[in-house]
């Protein structure tokens, strides 16, 4: 089996902003990730089930199904998949709520490249631990 440290991670990003997805995709690809995109929480839940990503990066304010509801469903159906919240709605209340629900990190928009890199490192560690 390929070493987790070297293998390409499959990351699902869910955000209704086309610009955000475009920028984030480019950064994740630089970090040796394969990217799948969802425009809302409903698509994120569907793609989580279909694609079995190694990690999910989830916005909160999205149409159809928001990020909080999507986080809840993803945690129920795929509890092993690490979820990172990436949102503008980073009030202390939202931060605590999502971390209690099982998100491994919360990144406030606007994000920096370093924050994304650290989040991917966290996901990679989780994946490595689960694969042992």
């Amino acid at each position: 089996m390929e070493n987790t440290e070297n293998r390409k991670l499959k990351i699902l990003i869910s955000d209704d902003s086309k610009l955000l997805r475009k920028k984030l995709r480019a950064e994740l690809e630089e970090l040796n990730c394969e990217v799948i995109e969802a425009e809302n929480g409903k698509e994120a839940i569907m793609l989580d089930l279909q694609e079995h990503p190694d990690g999910v990066i989830l916005d909160i304010v999205m149409p159809e199904v928001g990020g909080i509801e999507a986080l809840q469903v993803i945690r129920e159906v795929s509890p092993e998949i690490p979820v990172v919240m990436l949102s503008s709605a980073g009030t202390p209340q939202k931060l605590m709520q999502t971390l209690k629900m099982g998100a491994i990190d919360f990144i406030q928009k606007p994000y920096t490249g370093d924050q994304i890199k650290k989040a991917i490192e966290q996901i990679r560690k989780r994946v490595a631990r689960d694969e042992q």
């Binding site: 902003s17 610009l19 955000l20 304010v61 949102s87 503008s88 709605a89 980073g90 009030t91 202390p92 209340q93 406030q108 928009k109 606007p110």
Partner: peptide
């Protein structure tokens, strides 16, 4: 997205 980011920061300020 610009407004979304600014407004998110304003929500934190209000919090």
């Amino acid at each position: 997205e610009f407004f979304n980011v600014v407004n998110g920061l304003y929500c934190i300020q209000l919090a």
